[in-house]
């Protein structure tokens, strides 16, 4: 049964097929930033683009049941706090702000996923932050303007 929200059935089906690989690619870029080109910023951008694709294809209401904008705000602040907390733990343990304390204590094998100490954690924090930020930017620019247009009509 076709819903009124969102775009046509073809767009919805294509988005249903394409969105999971986009999310996985975003996660891959974020998690392997210390091994290959990539990192938190591009990974977060790819992740946010996946969300924006879902919102465009399925309409706002159904997508926001999964990720409400208030939740995005929490992810944004959580990413920033995680970054700061890692930095502060480094300054408590090693004496410098953002000291790579995990690498100093347990040096991982190079080219393995669990290596480079705090870097994967900081990449995850940046990825969360950037994804939530970009999602909120697009939502702020489209959703709020739609609300304003509706208010103008009434």
């Amino acid at each position: 049964m076709p819903e009124k929200e969102g775009m046509s059935l073809i767009v919805k089906e294509v988005a249903r097929l394409i969105a999971p690989p986009i999310f996985i690619f975003g996660l891959y870029l974020t998690l392997t930033g210390h091994l290959t080109p990539g990192g938190g910023f591009p990974g977060g951008v790819v992740f946010a683009c996946g969300f924006i694709l879902v919102v465009l294809a399925y309409g706002g209401k159904r997508a926001f049941r999964r990720l409400p904008p208030e939740g995005a705000s929490k992810y944004d602040s959580g990413g920033a706090l995680l970054f700061l907390v890692i930095g502060l733990i480094g300054s408590l343990v090693g004496g410098h702000f953002l000291y790579n304390f995990i690498q100093a204590a347990l040096p991982g094998t190079v080219f393995h996923l669990l290596s480079a100490g705090t870097m994967p954690l900081i990449n995850i924090a940046i990825g969360m932050k950037v994804a939530a930020c970009l999602f909120m930017v697009v939502m702020a620019l489209t959703l709020f303007r739609l609300a304003g247009e509706k208010g103008g009509e009434s």
């Binding site: 930033g33 091994l35 080109p37 990192g39 790579n100």
Partner: peptide, 30 residues
Amino acid sequence: TGAASAITAVLLDFRAYDTLGEATVIFTAI
């Protein structure tokens, strides 16, 4: 640093303070 990617090593270890500044800029902007 033990990181295979030298770019990430610079961004998140040698110059992590700059990256924190960039993240703060995005945070403040949004």
